[in-house]
Amino acid sequence: MRDETLFFGDQLAAILRALPDPAFVLTRSGRYIAIFGGIDTRYYHDGAGLIGKCVHDVLAPDKADWFLQEVEHALHSHGLHIVEYSLAACDVQGLESEGPGQRLWFEGRIQVLDFAVAGEDAVLWVASNITARKELEVQLRMQSEIDALSGLLNRRKLLQVLAEHYDTFERYGTPLTALVFDIDHFKRVNDAHGHLAGDAVLQTTAEVCRRELRSTDAPARLGGDEFVVLMPHTSGEQAAPIAERLRQRVAEALQALGSIGAGVTISGGLAGFAAGDARGEDVLKRADDALYQAKRAGRNRICGMR
Protein backbone atom coordinates (compact mmCIF):
# COMPACT_ATOMS: atom_id res chain seq x y z
CA MET A 1 0.00 0.00 0.00
CA ARG A 2 2.82 2.37 0.87
CA ASP A 3 4.54 1.69 -2.47
CA GLU A 4 1.27 2.35 -4.32
CA THR A 5 0.85 5.62 -2.45
CA LEU A 6 4.37 6.71 -3.38
CA PHE A 7 3.80 5.69 -6.98
CA PHE A 8 0.55 7.65 -7.12
CA GLY A 9 2.32 10.64 -5.58
CA ASP A 10 4.94 10.52 -8.33
CA GLN A 11 2.20 10.29 -10.94
CA LEU A 12 0.34 13.24 -9.45
CA ALA A 13 3.48 15.36 -9.49
CA ALA A 14 4.06 14.43 -13.12
CA ILE A 15 0.44 15.28 -14.00
CA LEU A 16 0.74 18.71 -12.36
CA ARG A 17 4.00 19.38 -14.21
CA ALA A 18 2.32 18.42 -17.52
CA LEU A 19 -0.49 20.98 -17.27
CA PRO A 20 -0.45 23.13 -20.44
CA ASP A 21 -1.54 26.26 -18.52
CA PRO A 22 0.29 27.47 -15.43
CA ALA A 23 -1.33 27.15 -12.01
CA PHE A 24 -0.08 29.39 -9.20
CA VAL A 25 -0.61 28.97 -5.47
CA LEU A 26 -0.96 32.55 -4.18
CA THR A 27 -1.42 33.61 -0.58
CA ARG A 28 -3.62 36.45 0.61
CA SER A 29 -0.56 38.71 0.85
CA GLY A 30 0.33 37.93 -2.77
CA ARG A 31 3.25 35.55 -2.27
CA TYR A 32 3.90 32.88 -4.91
CA ILE A 33 4.18 29.59 -3.01
CA ALA A 34 4.17 27.09 -5.87
CA ILE A 35 3.78 26.92 -9.64
CA PHE A 36 2.56 23.93 -11.61
CA GLY A 37 2.41 23.31 -15.35
CA GLY A 38 2.70 26.00 -17.98
CA ILE A 39 4.56 23.73 -20.41
CA ASP A 40 2.89 25.25 -23.51
CA THR A 41 5.94 27.25 -24.58
CA ARG A 42 3.95 29.06 -27.27
CA TYR A 43 2.41 31.19 -24.53
CA TYR A 44 4.38 30.79 -21.30
CA HIS A 45 7.90 31.08 -19.93
CA ASP A 46 9.35 29.13 -17.02
CA GLY A 47 7.86 30.70 -13.90
CA ALA A 48 9.98 28.86 -11.35
CA GLY A 49 11.77 32.10 -10.48
CA LEU A 50 8.55 33.54 -9.08
CA ILE A 51 8.39 31.13 -6.14
CA GLY A 52 8.96 32.96 -2.88
CA LYS A 53 8.37 36.39 -4.44
CA CYS A 54 5.36 38.67 -4.01
CA VAL A 55 3.27 40.11 -6.81
CA HIS A 56 4.65 43.56 -5.96
CA ASP A 57 8.15 42.23 -6.64
CA VAL A 58 7.33 41.25 -10.20
CA LEU A 59 4.44 43.47 -11.32
CA ALA A 60 3.88 47.20 -11.66
CA PRO A 61 2.14 48.62 -8.55
CA ASP A 62 -1.30 49.10 -10.11
CA LYS A 63 -1.28 45.64 -11.68
CA ALA A 64 -0.05 44.03 -8.44
CA ASP A 65 -2.81 45.79 -6.50
CA TRP A 66 -5.35 44.43 -8.98
CA PHE A 67 -4.10 40.85 -8.47
CA LEU A 68 -4.38 41.20 -4.68
CA GLN A 69 -7.87 42.65 -5.05
CA GLU A 70 -9.00 39.63 -7.10
CA VAL A 71 -7.41 37.18 -4.63
CA GLU A 72 -9.29 38.92 -1.82
CA HIS A 73 -12.52 38.76 -3.80
CA ALA A 74 -12.12 35.01 -4.30
CA LEU A 75 -11.34 34.45 -0.61
CA HIS A 76 -14.38 36.45 0.40
CA SER A 77 -16.74 34.63 -2.00
CA HIS A 78 -15.38 31.14 -1.16
CA GLY A 79 -16.18 30.00 -4.72
CA LEU A 80 -14.62 29.89 -8.16
CA HIS A 81 -13.81 33.42 -9.30
CA ILE A 82 -13.13 34.00 -13.03
CA VAL A 83 -11.46 37.14 -14.38
CA GLU A 84 -9.96 38.38 -17.63
CA TYR A 85 -6.85 40.53 -17.62
CA SER A 86 -4.01 41.67 -19.82
CA LEU A 87 -0.25 41.83 -19.33
CA ALA A 88 2.25 43.81 -21.35
CA ALA A 89 5.98 44.34 -20.94
CA CYS A 90 5.29 47.57 -19.04
CA ASP A 91 3.29 45.62 -16.45
CA VAL A 92 6.17 43.29 -15.54
CA GLN A 93 9.23 44.32 -13.54
CA GLY A 94 12.73 42.90 -13.95
CA LEU A 95 12.35 41.35 -17.40
CA GLU A 96 15.67 40.15 -18.81
CA SER A 97 14.45 41.06 -22.31
CA GLU A 98 11.94 43.65 -23.57
CA GLY A 99 9.16 41.11 -23.26
CA PRO A 100 6.30 40.56 -25.70
CA GLY A 101 5.72 43.29 -28.24
CA GLN A 102 1.96 42.99 -27.88
CA ARG A 103 -0.39 43.01 -24.93
CA LEU A 104 -1.32 39.44 -23.95
CA TRP A 105 -4.72 38.50 -22.56
CA PHE A 106 -5.44 35.84 -19.96
CA GLU A 107 -8.40 34.23 -18.25
CA GLY A 108 -7.74 33.62 -14.58
CA ARG A 109 -9.71 30.93 -12.75
CA ILE A 110 -9.23 31.48 -9.03
CA GLN A 111 -10.23 28.75 -6.60
CA VAL A 112 -9.96 29.12 -2.81
CA LEU A 113 -7.94 26.38 -1.09
CA ASP A 114 -9.57 24.92 2.02
CA PHE A 115 -6.31 24.82 3.94
CA ALA A 116 -3.73 27.39 4.96
CA VAL A 117 -0.46 27.72 3.05
CA ALA A 118 2.59 29.16 4.81
CA GLY A 119 0.25 30.33 7.55
CA GLU A 120 -2.05 32.26 5.23
CA ASP A 121 -5.28 31.79 3.32
CA ALA A 122 -4.43 30.92 -0.27
CA VAL A 123 -5.89 30.37 -3.72
CA LEU A 124 -5.05 28.34 -6.79
CA TRP A 125 -4.84 30.72 -9.77
CA VAL A 126 -4.94 28.99 -13.17
CA ALA A 127 -4.00 31.31 -16.05
CA SER A 128 -5.04 30.56 -19.64
CA ASN A 129 -3.77 32.63 -22.57
CA ILE A 130 -6.81 33.94 -24.50
CA THR A 131 -5.00 36.48 -26.70
CA ALA A 132 -6.11 34.79 -29.94
CA ARG A 133 -9.72 34.88 -28.77
CA LYS A 134 -9.46 38.55 -27.81
CA GLU A 135 -7.97 39.43 -31.19
CA LEU A 136 -10.84 37.62 -32.91
CA GLU A 137 -13.34 39.50 -30.73
CA VAL A 138 -11.75 42.79 -31.78
CA GLN A 139 -11.92 41.81 -35.45
CA LEU A 140 -15.57 40.79 -35.18
CA ARG A 141 -16.44 43.97 -33.30
CA MET A 142 -14.73 46.07 -35.96
CA GLN A 143 -16.58 44.22 -38.70
CA SER A 144 -19.88 44.94 -36.95
CA GLU A 145 -19.09 48.61 -36.24
CA ILE A 146 -16.78 49.85 -39.02
CA ASP A 147 -17.63 50.53 -42.64
CA ALA A 148 -15.24 48.38 -44.68
CA LEU A 149 -14.67 50.87 -47.51
CA SER A 150 -14.19 54.11 -45.57
CA GLY A 151 -12.91 52.85 -42.24
CA LEU A 152 -15.40 55.13 -40.49
CA LEU A 153 -18.26 54.07 -38.23
CA ASN A 154 -21.04 52.27 -40.06
CA ARG A 155 -24.73 53.10 -39.86
CA ARG A 156 -25.41 50.60 -37.06
CA LYS A 157 -22.66 51.97 -34.81
CA LEU A 158 -23.55 55.56 -35.66
CA LEU A 159 -27.12 55.09 -34.46
CA GLN A 160 -25.89 53.41 -31.28
CA VAL A 161 -23.54 56.32 -30.50
CA LEU A 162 -26.28 58.81 -31.37
CA ALA A 163 -28.71 57.10 -28.98
CA GLU A 164 -26.14 57.26 -26.17
CA HIS A 165 -25.63 60.99 -26.71
CA TYR A 166 -29.38 61.54 -26.89
CA ASP A 167 -29.77 59.90 -23.49
CA THR A 168 -27.14 62.28 -22.11
CA PHE A 169 -28.93 65.24 -23.70
CA GLU A 170 -32.26 64.20 -22.20
CA ARG A 171 -30.75 63.79 -18.75
CA TYR A 172 -28.32 66.70 -18.56
CA GLY A 173 -29.06 68.93 -21.56
CA THR A 174 -25.61 68.28 -23.03
CA PRO A 175 -25.58 69.68 -26.59
CA LEU A 176 -24.68 67.78 -29.74
CA THR A 177 -24.54 69.02 -33.31
CA ALA A 178 -24.77 66.68 -36.27
CA LEU A 179 -23.38 67.35 -39.74
CA VAL A 180 -24.90 65.36 -42.61
CA PHE A 181 -23.09 65.78 -45.93
CA ASP A 182 -22.74 64.08 -49.26
CA ILE A 183 -20.53 64.40 -52.31
CA ASP A 184 -21.72 66.72 -55.04
CA HIS A 185 -22.11 65.08 -58.47
CA PHE A 186 -20.92 61.71 -57.15
CA LYS A 187 -22.91 59.84 -59.80
CA ARG A 188 -21.01 61.77 -62.45
CA VAL A 189 -17.71 60.48 -61.01
CA ASN A 190 -18.90 56.87 -61.19
CA ASP A 191 -20.33 57.28 -64.70
CA ALA A 192 -17.24 59.01 -66.10
CA HIS A 193 -14.44 57.18 -64.29
CA GLY A 194 -15.91 53.96 -62.90
CA HIS A 195 -16.76 52.68 -59.47
CA LEU A 196 -13.13 52.27 -58.40
CA ALA A 197 -12.70 56.01 -58.90
CA GLY A 198 -15.85 56.56 -56.86
CA ASP A 199 -14.38 54.41 -54.09
CA ALA A 200 -11.22 56.55 -54.15
CA VAL A 201 -13.35 59.68 -53.69
CA LEU A 202 -15.14 58.11 -50.72
CA GLN A 203 -11.90 56.92 -49.14
CA THR A 204 -10.24 60.31 -49.60
CA THR A 205 -13.22 62.02 -47.99
CA ALA A 206 -13.07 59.62 -45.05
CA GLU A 207 -9.34 60.23 -44.63
CA VAL A 208 -9.93 63.99 -44.44
CA CYS A 209 -12.56 63.38 -41.75
CA ARG A 210 -10.09 61.37 -39.67
CA ARG A 211 -7.38 63.99 -40.12
CA GLU A 212 -9.35 67.20 -39.66
CA LEU A 213 -12.01 66.40 -37.07
CA ARG A 214 -11.49 66.45 -33.32
CA SER A 215 -10.81 63.26 -31.40
CA THR A 216 -14.20 63.60 -29.68
CA ASP A 217 -16.11 63.79 -32.98
CA ALA A 218 -17.64 60.64 -34.49
CA PRO A 219 -17.55 60.50 -38.29
CA ALA A 220 -19.53 57.78 -40.04
CA ARG A 221 -20.52 56.67 -43.50
CA LEU A 222 -24.29 56.45 -43.53
CA GLY A 223 -24.41 54.74 -46.92
CA GLY A 224 -23.58 55.48 -50.54
CA ASP A 225 -21.90 58.89 -50.65
CA GLU A 226 -23.65 60.18 -47.51
CA PHE A 227 -21.64 60.87 -44.36
CA VAL A 228 -22.51 61.97 -40.83
CA VAL A 229 -20.35 63.65 -38.22
CA LEU A 230 -21.55 63.74 -34.62
CA MET A 231 -20.01 66.60 -32.64
CA PRO A 232 -20.80 66.10 -28.94
CA HIS A 233 -20.61 68.94 -26.40
CA THR A 234 -20.79 71.30 -29.37
CA SER A 235 -23.33 74.03 -30.13
CA GLY A 236 -24.32 74.99 -33.64
CA GLU A 237 -22.25 78.15 -33.40
CA GLN A 238 -19.19 76.10 -32.44
CA ALA A 239 -19.85 73.44 -35.08
CA ALA A 240 -20.23 75.81 -38.04
CA PRO A 241 -16.51 76.66 -38.48
CA ILE A 242 -15.57 72.99 -38.00
CA ALA A 243 -17.97 71.96 -40.76
CA GLU A 244 -16.80 74.78 -43.03
CA ARG A 245 -13.15 73.82 -42.57
CA LEU A 246 -14.03 70.21 -43.36
CA ARG A 247 -15.81 71.29 -46.54
CA GLN A 248 -12.76 73.19 -47.71
CA ARG A 249 -10.28 70.43 -46.83
CA VAL A 250 -12.33 67.75 -48.59
CA ALA A 251 -12.51 69.87 -51.75
CA GLU A 252 -8.73 70.39 -51.67
CA ALA A 253 -8.05 66.68 -51.17
CA LEU A 254 -10.40 65.68 -53.98
CA GLN A 255 -8.82 68.18 -56.37
CA ALA A 256 -5.48 66.50 -55.65
CA LEU A 257 -6.87 63.28 -57.19
CA GLY A 258 -6.62 64.90 -60.61
CA SER A 259 -9.33 64.42 -63.20
CA ILE A 260 -11.28 62.09 -60.90
CA GLY A 261 -11.87 64.81 -58.32
CA ALA A 262 -11.94 67.83 -60.58
CA GLY A 263 -14.79 70.08 -59.45
CA VAL A 264 -16.01 67.56 -56.87
CA THR A 265 -17.17 69.15 -53.61
CA ILE A 266 -19.44 68.39 -50.67
CA SER A 267 -22.68 69.90 -49.42
CA GLY A 268 -23.83 69.58 -45.85
CA GLY A 269 -26.47 70.42 -43.28
CA LEU A 270 -26.08 71.14 -39.57
CA ALA A 271 -28.61 70.55 -36.80
CA GLY A 272 -28.51 70.11 -33.04
CA PHE A 273 -30.55 68.30 -30.43
CA ALA A 274 -33.74 70.19 -29.57
CA ALA A 275 -36.07 70.06 -26.57
CA GLY A 276 -38.88 68.50 -28.59
CA ASP A 277 -36.84 65.61 -29.96
CA ALA A 278 -38.40 62.21 -29.24
CA ARG A 279 -35.31 60.25 -30.28
CA GLY A 280 -31.77 60.76 -31.50
CA GLU A 281 -32.62 60.27 -35.16
CA ASP A 282 -34.68 63.50 -35.11
CA VAL A 283 -31.48 65.53 -35.29
CA LEU A 284 -30.39 63.61 -38.41
CA LYS A 285 -33.71 64.41 -40.08
CA ARG A 286 -33.22 68.15 -39.50
CA ALA A 287 -29.59 67.99 -40.64
CA ASP A 288 -30.70 66.11 -43.77
CA ASP A 289 -33.29 68.82 -44.47
CA ALA A 290 -30.52 71.41 -44.16
CA LEU A 291 -28.40 69.36 -46.58
CA TYR A 292 -31.10 69.57 -49.23
CA GLN A 293 -31.32 73.29 -48.60
CA ALA A 294 -27.60 73.47 -49.41
CA LYS A 295 -28.20 71.50 -52.61
CA ARG A 296 -30.98 73.85 -53.69
CA ALA A 297 -28.80 76.86 -52.93
CA GLY A 298 -26.16 75.71 -55.42
CA ARG A 299 -24.13 72.98 -53.64
CA ASN A 300 -20.60 73.27 -52.20
CA ARG A 301 -21.82 74.84 -48.96
CA ILE A 302 -22.98 74.09 -45.41
CA CYS A 303 -26.47 75.18 -44.37
CA GLY A 304 -28.24 75.04 -41.04
CA MET A 305 -27.26 76.18 -37.57
CA ARG A 306 -25.05 79.23 -37.17
Rank of each mutant, 00 (worst) to 15 (best):
P241R: 11
V92P: 13
C209Q: 10
A48P: 01
T41C: 05
K53M: 15
G38P: 01
E4N: 08
D21K: 11
G9K: 14
K157R: 15
F181H: 03
A192N: 13
Q203W: 02
S77E: 08
L246R: 02
G198P: 04
G108D: 08
E252K: 12
G236V: 09
D65G: 03
E244N: 05
V283E: 06
E252S: 11
V71A: 03
L12V: 09
T5V: 13
L12R: 10
D114M: 07
A48K: 06
S144W: 05
A178T: 15
T174F: 03
E164W: 08
L153G: 05
G304L: 02
L196K: 13
C209S: 14
G79Y: 00
E145F: 10
Q255S: 12
F115I: 12
R299Y: 02
N154E: 14
V83I: 13
D21S: 15
L176E: 00
D191E: 14
G37P: 00
A287E: 00
A127V: 08
P22T: 05
R296L: 14
E164H: 07
R141Y: 09
N300H: 10
V283N: 02
S86M: 06
D191T: 08
E164N: 04
Q11D: 04
Q93K: 12
K53F: 11
A64S: 05
F227C: 08
D40M: 07
R211Q: 15
L152G: 04
G269H: 01
A34T: 06
L136W: 05
D182H: 00
P175H: 11
V55C: 02
T234L: 05
A64Q: 05
A220G: 05
Y292K: 12
L196I: 12
L254R: 07
L19N: 14
K285F: 07
Q160F: 09
R286K: 13
E237V: 08
H73N: 06
I183T: 08
I15Q: 03
S29Y: 11
D167P: 09
G224P: 12
L16G: 08
G30F: 00
A178S: 10
